[in-house]
Design a binder for these strands. Structure first.
Lengths: 199, 199
DNA sequence: GTCTATAAATGGATAGAC
DNA sequence: GTCTATCCATTTATAGAC
């Protein structure tokens, strides 16, 4: 076998995981549409035929990455929904989303940049819409409990929170100086209490 | 003349402005790279030759739109820098950025999605970096005045604020129910004091 | 201001050998 | 698991007529 963490002998010897990883990496650097299969094979150091031995299409690479991102976010949402109180549910989905986003930054980045240009993209956007809708419900119940300002539309409030959260993909890097768990708590704190010092 | 608001006789009769407007519109729907010149001519109802009579290249359409976005943001920043106090400067750049973003949503959206795939994109990203850097300076001075929590890195604080602001391009629509000026004040309020109700 | 026709390159993908 | 060679659709852009 060439996969796993064995065999790094006789030249490249890639497997499907390598192709996906490099594909996602390149899609994030240049954008999915701006990345040609040749760009991909160049970085991998193989020909197109070699690449097509591992994956069916360029779109399949995207599809696998999106499943990873959406699966993570949906799992985090399910976990949040199992919490007992509205306050715990809101805390759990914010920290959970930050956690998924930092752990799978490349995949989530792809998800957030989709435009719906293909069946794969449309299907992923639909799942993302469902996620957003359920989260908005959590924000709404937090409002009726007095945890979140009720004079703000629940949809707008959700978009502002997730605007902050989702923007992490633009600058958070796993090898950077920011601790992901601390970051989750900070984002929650800023979302609830703002940037002004508390007295 | 065919331009301005005159002459809507003898069939299409487009001018440069039409091409730019429709181009930006389509770039935002599908992404710049996913949009072909044929997509553009199809929506305009003309042939490629007609389009190339108005603009030099597909890239030039992007370039003009980016100049519009960056010019607006830079003007807002200049205006903020002319204010007397750190608090006024911070308020001015937040509300100013929201104002530009709502007034020129399509152009700013393009700016925020750039990946640096061409000279035009690299140049625009450089100007955007300068903007971000100056804004971070405003946040830093607000921290030393005690207006913003000092235990947070100024860069992180700026990114969180602008994460919230920039996410507006994903959902704000000029024909929607949300008043742009009110939105600017709300974003500033949420950034400073959070979503939790104040007592 | 718009057209037809076409150039020249690059796109995603496959056949078949090793 | 990777290669060379190739197909064919689509891409950006231009020449030159009306």
């Amino acid at each position: 076998m060439t996969s796993a963490r064995s065999a790094r002998r006789g030249r490249p010897g890639h497997d499907r995981e390598d192709v996906i990883r490099v594909g996602v990496e390149l899609f994030n650097e240049q954008g999915y549409d701006a990345t040609s299969v040749s760009d991909l094979t160049n970085r991998l150091g193989v020909t197109k035929s070699a690449l097509y031995h591992h994956v069916d299409s360029k779109a399949q690479i995207l599809e696998i990455a999106l499943e990873d991102a959406l699966g993570g976010l949906e799992d985090a949402l399910d976990a949040a929904l199992r919490r007992a109180t509205p306050a715990e549910r809101l805390t759990a989905i914010v920290e959970g989303a930050v956690s998924v986003l930092t752990a799978r930054q490349p995949q989530v980045t792809l998800l957030l940049r989709l435009r719906g240009n293909s069946d794969v993209e449309v299907a992923a956007l639909e799942r993302r819409r469902n996620f957003d809708h359920t989260v908005t419900g959590l924000v709404r119940e937090a409002q009726s409990e007095g945890l979140v300002r009720a004079d703000l539309d629940a949809g707008v409030a959700t978009r502002l929170i997730f605007g902050m959260i989702n923007s992490l993909v633009e600058w958070y890097r796993p090898d950077g100086p920011v601790d992901p768990e601390l970051l989750g708590r900070e984002v929650l704190a800023v979302a609830l209490d703002g940037l002004r010092p508390r007295d």
